[in-house]
Design a binder for these strands. Structure first.
Lengths: 157, 157
DNA sequence: ACGAGAAACGCACCCGAGTTGCATCTCGGG
DNA sequence: CCCGAGATGCAACTCGGGTGCGTTTCTCGT
């Protein structure tokens, strides 16, 4: 489903260097440590939205601690490098908001959750349309809402 | 959609009788049991959104079991009598659905959830727009998805 | 009214995601 | 190089959600 989409995205982009990732961290007032670099590298190579568990799964065989990964994610989110999203299933998910080289400079966008397999995908090319005289809260008309779609993905339908 | 609004709502409505609550349950294909009636009574008297913990706090001195309360909430939500919402803090909150008729309320239009007060409103005048060459699952392009917007309502912003 | 079957309950327990405490390590500035 | 404070790893905890199972109870049919 989304794996194909994400993979395509990753291939079309040159990976940032360690120096660039270091600059990103220091620019945010954070120390450039190995676990942090590994997390950032993961986000630049995988793209999309990722849960703590997914990231830990990928990085734990390098000796990185689960609680440390968690703290790193929270710190990076607080620093504005990642965004933290809750899609309604009690799992925090993280995405690059301000990556190295600006290549993954990601604005808010709708997310799609498959009600069958639970897969999550980003849909940056969708927006809301208010029809005619329809009423909506100001946050909606000002586009200050998060948008979540639920349905069946192409694989599950 | 603040406390004022909820309080006004509660005053303008006469509390339903046990018979009416029984009818509500049976109409949804559920048995009319004492714990379920107590939960429904709680919702009709308190209004607003309520977490499992709050409801259990209020009802446990009547001998009702925590797990039972949880199951009841989930059953009532599945039956369409309650709506279940996560406001972003990883706590499920439940609220009487409008009309409390469940079966007649569909997902054919977007819903807005206020992340502060938890109020849920229908936004039938909104739709999705796919921009340009953007890719999206077929269920999205065919409008077979439920759409949820999260943000601050006009009262809470 | 009675009986039966299945839904629902209460008791006890478990789980996963998130989070914390603390000793030790390490980054980076002086 | 030194040092201080931030960051890490280890171990454990918390909290909300959820499950298994024996027993109870609702309700439908006779």
């Amino acid at each position: 489903m989304s794996a194909r989409h994400v993979a395509t995205k990753a291939r079309s982009r040159v990976a940032p260097t360690v120096k660039e990732l270091q600059g990103l961290l220091r620019g945010a007032g954070l120390r450039s440590t190995a676990p942090r670099l590994a997390v950032l590298e993961y986000f630049h190579s995988h793209g999309g939205t990722n849960s703590h568990a997914e990231i830990f799964d990928a990085l734990h065989d390098r000796g990185f601690d689960r609680a440390t990964i968690y703290r790193i994610l929270v710190d990076l989110a607080e620093a504005g490098i990642l965004s933290r999203t809750d899609l309604g299933d009690h799992v925090w998910r993280f995405e690059l908001r301000r990556g190295a080289r600006g290549a993954q400079h990601t604005e808010e966008h709708p997310h799609f959750v498959c009600v069958d397999c639970g897969g999550v995908s980003c849909l940056p090319g969708l927006s809301l349309k208010v029809e005619g005289q329809a009423k909506a809260p100001r946050s909606v008309t000002k586009n200050k809402v998060s948008i979540q779609l639920k349905g069946l993905c192409d694989d599950c339908s």
